[in-house]
């Protein structure tokens, strides 16, 4: 559990850490768009270079980024298997009797894998360099224009920030209950299916009980302090755009444009 790094904030000191969360969120969206533009090998090479540079500028190690991608490996393997059975175009790569693996199946998977990896790298750049609280402030601000059409910006931000706040708590809680049950002889690795189900049950039930308990306590504590969702409220921390934030947006927009042009030319 301690090794679970996807979405974890890393408190380093880099220019990317200092940027305005709103700029970072918008830049991330722009880069995600450019990842979805099919611009061939050259396009993806450019994107990969830009994104890896960003990762290094943020003082994140490539090992950390690799770790956050690990949970996706399983999905990619699954995808590869599906593709092998479903895609029957391109050249035959390998043939076992009358079962053939086509080149497009492999290429399709690699294509998706590359895009997925780039996407995870970009989102990691955002979440690892932005405190969860700043992230929600940014989301709230960006959603504000949509308030007029009935999007409850503040409530959404509050829900996200509470959810983010409780992820580490729940992980800690899970760890603790796992240890407590391990002391009672639960073995999550070995054992028969029935024992495994029992082991998972012994983890899930206490976890839910305490999560609900926590939710109720938190709701009561918020109400006791006069929290009302619709109220206008001021903020301690004011977000401000600096020159570097404008530069980030200009650069990301430039990247989208460049990739789009490349896609049209090809």
């Amino acid at each position: 559990m301690g090794n679970f790094v996807l979405g974890k904030y890393l408190p380093y000191d880099s220019i990317i850490h200092k940027m305005d969360p709103r700029a970072k969120i918008l830049a991330m969206l722009l880069v995600l768009i450019s990842i979805f533009i099919p611009a061939g090998y050259l396009g993806y090479a450019i994107l990969a270079v830009v994104i890896v540079t960003t990762v290094l500028t943020a003082k994140l190690s490539l090992k950390f980024v690799w770790k956050s991608m690990k949970p996706m490996l399983f999905m990619l393997c699954f995808l590869l298997v599906v593709n092998i059975f479903a895609v029957k175009t391109g050249d035959v790569l390998i043939a076992f009797g009358n079962f053939e693996i086509y080149s497009d199946a492999v290429f399709n998977t690699i294509y998706i894998a590359v895009r997925l990896m780039l996407m995870i790298m970009v989102t990691t750049c955002l979440t690892a360099t932005t405190k969860p609280l700043d992230l929600t402030l940014g989301i709230e601000d960006l959603l504000k224009p949509f308030k007029k059409v009935g999007v409850p910006a503040h409530e959404i931000a509050m829900m996200i920030s509470i959810a983010l706040r409780f992820i580490p708590t729940l992980i800690e809680e899970t760890e603790r209950i796992m240890k407590a049950q391990a002391s009672r002889g639960v073995d999550l690795q070995e054992g028969k299916l029935k024992e495994k189900i029992m082991a998972i049950l012994s983890l899930i039930v206490p976890l839910f009980v305490s999560a609900f308990q926590r939710a109720e306590d938190l709701a009561n504590a918020m109400e006791a302090r006069g929290y009302a969702p619709g109220q206008r409220r001021t903020r301690y921390k004011q977000l401000r755009f600096h020159f570097r934030d404008y530069m980030l947006l200009v650069c990301s927009a430039g990247l989208v444009a460049a990739v789009a042009v490349l896609a049209l030319v090809l």
Partner: peptide, 17 residues
């Protein structure tokens, strides 16, 4: 080993299920 060493955690009531 765990069958010989019984460990009761801080606030063990959370392990009942």
């Amino acid at each position: 080993l765990r069958s010989h060493v019984g460990l009761v955690f801080q606030f063990p009531e959370y392990q009942l299920f």
